[in-house]
């Protein structure tokens, strides 16, 4: 049974890879999408059945089956109804859900684990997954709102300055925590980090121009991939690590390619500045 599951995950990983490869050629893109989707279904079904053979309470199973059913139907419905022009928004919204999922996983793990017996490395991974997931969640929502035109660019000094402070905090606080300077238990600390990261996600995307949103969405997509990979390390699941890293690496390259197609540098996009028009 164990071997079958491992082989299944291997096939799923290969299907993600094949899917990405096929999706980068116009003729075979549809096949690529189908292959990756099938691989994903395989991975999910395997995980479900491999875990369910043990004694799992019925409540959990019912909640999961419900969540999966509603999620699938809603995803299908949203993508069927969307206008052609609204597609980038929807992609951004779906990216937000992925980031949200990664953040929740971090919080749940923090609720459950006992700090004393948990490995230091695991805590680092949980923190990394939580913060990247939270940034992707709120950042993608703001990107979606901007494309919809309800949120305007804000390039004030205050926004940019506080974004930098928050980013520094996100790096500094975990360091201080592991050095023992912050007398909080791991759970409370994780909730605080989640809030800081979510605010940072908002401030990160706010100054960026609306026309640059596809680039930002691609970048956030790559961040979600990295969050997935962190979670994959926590569970020691190769399909998650590989899928996450593929998306992370491909997403960053895609971001750079999109920048080049628009003849802008990534740094300029992120700073929200234009060539002849300095705002800020």
């Amino acid at each position: 049974m164990h071997a079958i599951i491992e082989i299944g995950y291997l096939i799923a990983t290969l299907s993600f890879l094949g899917g990405l490869k096929f999706m980068s050629s116009p003729k075979r893109a549809k096949t690529g999408n189908l292959i990756a989707a099938l691989g994903m279904v395989l991975a999910v079904i395997l995980t479900f059945f491999a875990g369910t053979t043990e004694t799992v309470p019925y409540t959990n199973l019912i909640i999961m089956v419900l969540a999966i059913t509603v999620g699938t139907l809603l995803g299908k419905r949203l993508s069927d109804k969307v206008q052609m022009t609204g597609m980038p928004q929807l992609v951004s919204l779906f990216n937000a859900t992925g980031g949200g999922c990664a953040m929740l996983l971090g919080l749940m793990e923090a609720n459950q684990i006992k700090t004393e017996i948990t490995h230091f490395g695991n805590q680092v991974l949980l923190i990394a997954g939580l913060t990247t997931g939270a940034i992707a969640l709120t950042g993608s929502i703001i990107a979606e709102r901007k494309l919809a035109g309800t949120v305007k660019d804000k390039r004030g000094r205050a926004v940019i300055f506080s974004a930098r402070i928050l980013l520094a905090l996100l790096l500094l606080l975990p360091t201080l925590y592991f050095l023992g300077f912050i007398p909080l238990d791991f759970m409370a600390f994780m909730y605080i980090l989640a809030i800081i990261a979510m605010v940072y996600g908002v401030l990160f995307v706010l100054p960026i121009g609306g026309a640059d949103m596809p680039v930002v969405i691609s970048l956030l997509n790559s961040i979600t991939g990295i969050a997935t990979a962190f979670a994959g390390f926590v569970y020691g699941n190769k399909a998650m690590i590989a899928g996450g890293i593929f998306v992370g690496a491909a997403g960053i390259l895609l971001t750079l390619l999109m920048c080049r197609a628009m003849n802008r540098s990534l740094l300029k996009v992120l700073a929200g500045t234009f060539k002849n028009n300095k705002t800020g």
């Binding site: 990405l20 980068s24 990756a36 989707a37 994903m40 992609v91 779906f94 992925g98």
Partner: peptide, 30 residues
């Protein structure tokens, strides 16, 4: 794997990669 993607496919590829990052669901189920 995506080094030679033509510009026309940037958006679908981004969307497809986004779907693949949903493999985080495996972690949620576990």
């Amino acid at each position: 794997v995506i080094a030679n993607v033509p510009a026309i496919l940037h958006t679908p590829l981004m969307s497809g990669a986004n779907a693949i990052s949903g493999v985080i669901l495996v972690g949620a189920i576990l």
